[in-house]
Amino acid sequence: MRHVIGWLLLTPAAILLIAFTYWPIGATVADSLFSRGNPIRPSRFIGLENYALMADDPIFWQVLWNNALFALGTIPASIALALMMALMVNRALPGRALARMAFFTPTILPMIAVANIWLFFYTPDIGLIDQIAGLIGLPGHNWLGDPDTVLGAIIVMTVWKEAGFFMIFYLAALQTIPPELWEAARLEGAARWTYFRRILFPLLMPTTLFVLINAILNSFKLVDHLFILTKGGPDNASNLLLYYIFETAFSFFDTTYAATLTVVLLLVLAVLSLVQYVVLDKRIHYR
């Protein structure tokens, strides 16, 4: 009886999960083994040919490399800032609520709105950054149009958006650390930096790992800003994997190659979840 009721309760959710998560995962893998069809030549089974194509596709490698750089640029910076912010507003200070709000607000804005605001900062010559640079006599620069600076510009913006989100996890963790620890360390003559490095930081490690995994996931899932800022350009210098998948499927209409690229993204996510499962205690990541 309980088996029947259990499954009945689960059925509505299960149908949707199958339709929009499990089935498409399977279909993606299957599609990646077929050729791109057209009205004259229908799609046919080609084995791993799409993967061979992908291995020879310089854009694929560039996009993957960009994703790695994007992750490397955003994650350590936003985690360090998040921790600093949390330490700053965890003590008594006038205007504490305001400071917390200032740090957290970018988090609840849609990435599209953030990109809209930052687009103007980066606009060559008339944009805010170049205007300010002009005041001290620096020449204007096309931040988003130069392959050397475009990824950096996007990284700065993303750090601005994400640091406040990670801050709240550090704040929550800091509040569970007994103040006696600092008292004791002070009695032992420990400097504040030593206390941070030897006691506080290790105690915050579970939070850091939790935030780290989430930050890596975000760096693969978040591509909204590219639609406004760069469209992946110039010359794919800011293109990321999910955006390339979108382009391949909906601009170049090559759904089987898009499926092949999606398989790579799924593999990345699978490895990350495995790491999360093995490295992190369940209690930590599903608190």
């Binding site: 929009f20 998560t21 089935w23 498409p24 995962i25 279909a27 993606t28 599609d31 899932k221 999910l242 998948i245 979108f246 499927a249 759904t255 898009a258 499926a259 999606t262 993204l265 799924l266 996510l269």
Partner: peptide, 9 residues
């Protein structure tokens, strides 16, 4: 694996 990862399918 959120549904938006599987946009094509």
């Amino acid at each position: 694996i959120a549904p938006e990862i599987l946009i094509v399918e």
